Simulated assay, not measured.
Amino acid sequence: MTPGVITLADGRLLSWHEFGDPDGSPVLYTAGTPVSGLGGACYDQTARAAGLRWISPDKPGYGASGHQRRRSLASWSDDLLALASHLGLGRFALAGESGGAPFTLAAAHRLGDRVSVVALIAAGGPMGPAERVGMTSSARVMNWFARNAPALNTFRVAAMRRALVSPKNLQRAIHDVGVDRSAEVMSVLASYVK
């Protein structure tokens, strides 16, 4: 599928991909880190079955979306509002996965009157020592960097992104994640947006 692209008020490009049912109830999905809007493809079949139009934008600096120097949680809601307006969406659901969850919550807060429901998928919160028990060493290192030296995480995220370019590595990562719960997520979303 060819992504759609619009020019935002500040001159940046915002691209997006659509999956699921083209005539279904709209859901603006924010993928986690380091995933582009193409990550929405993993929900294509279940969104279609649930009657959801799964709209998956590329975050700033991902895919064909332009880099945003001073990106913030709040600025993402402006991008989503521009996309929703461009697509002629009145009300819509929001879904955010993993690192996309905080941006989704901020957008829900700022766009409250336009949002019908919010779904968070594999969202995390503050982590203390008890929450870190059982984490892989790689996840512990990223968690430490996030708390103590966030700028250093950019190197780890870039390495993850390069690794996932390989289809073999991507399949292994998907397999390692475990159980696919997308049908449950779609069922819950569909019950609220219709």
Rank of each mutant, 00 (worst) to 15 (best):
P167M: 05
A106W: 04
A158R: 05
G134L: 11
L89Q: 05
H175I: 01
E184Y: 03
R132P: 00
M160Y: 05
M186C: 15
F19A: 02
A139Y: 07
G100D: 02
K168R: 14
G39A: 08
V141F: 09
G124D: 14
A47R: 07
V157D: 03
H109T: 05
D176W: 00
R110S: 10
P26K: 00
H17S: 04
L164M: 15
S138V: 08
P126M: 14
T104L: 01
G32M: 03
N169W: 02
A173Q: 12
V141K: 07
D10R: 01
V179L: 09
P57L: 08
W76M: 09
G178D: 10
S36M: 03
S36A: 08
Y62L: 00
G128A: 13
S75K: 04
K59L: 12
V188N: 11
G63F: 04
M160R: 06
V177Y: 15
R156L: 11
S85P: 00
G61S: 10
E131G: 04
P22Q: 10
M127D: 12
N143P: 15
A183K: 04
V177A: 14
L189Q: 01
A64E: 13
G24E: 05
R48S: 11
A41N: 05
G63C: 15
G90C: 06
L89D: 14
P150L: 09
H175N: 11
P129F: 09
A149C: 10
P167Y: 02
Y192W: 13
A107R: 02
H109Y: 09
V118L: 09
G99C: 01
M142S: 11
R110W: 09
N148F: 12
L87Y: 07
A108V: 09
T154M: 13
N169S: 06
L14Q: 05
R156C: 08
A183V: 14
E97A: 01
K194Q: 10
S166W: 00
S77L: 08
A93T: 02
R53I: 02
G63S: 12
A74G: 07
Y192L: 15
E18R: 01
A95K: 05
P57N: 13
R114N: 07
A49W: 13
R132M: 07
R172T: 11
P167W: 00
H17T: 01
A82Y: 05
P60R: 06
G112M: 09
E131T: 05
G40V: 01
F145P: 00
R53L: 01
E18P: 06
L170F: 05
A119F: 02
S138M: 15
A108F: 05
V141W: 03
Y192H: 13
L81Q: 06
A139W: 08
D180W: 06
L52A: 09
R69N: 15
F19Y: 07
A139L: 08
D44S: 13
P22A: 10
R162F: 10
L83T: 01
L52S: 04
A50L: 06
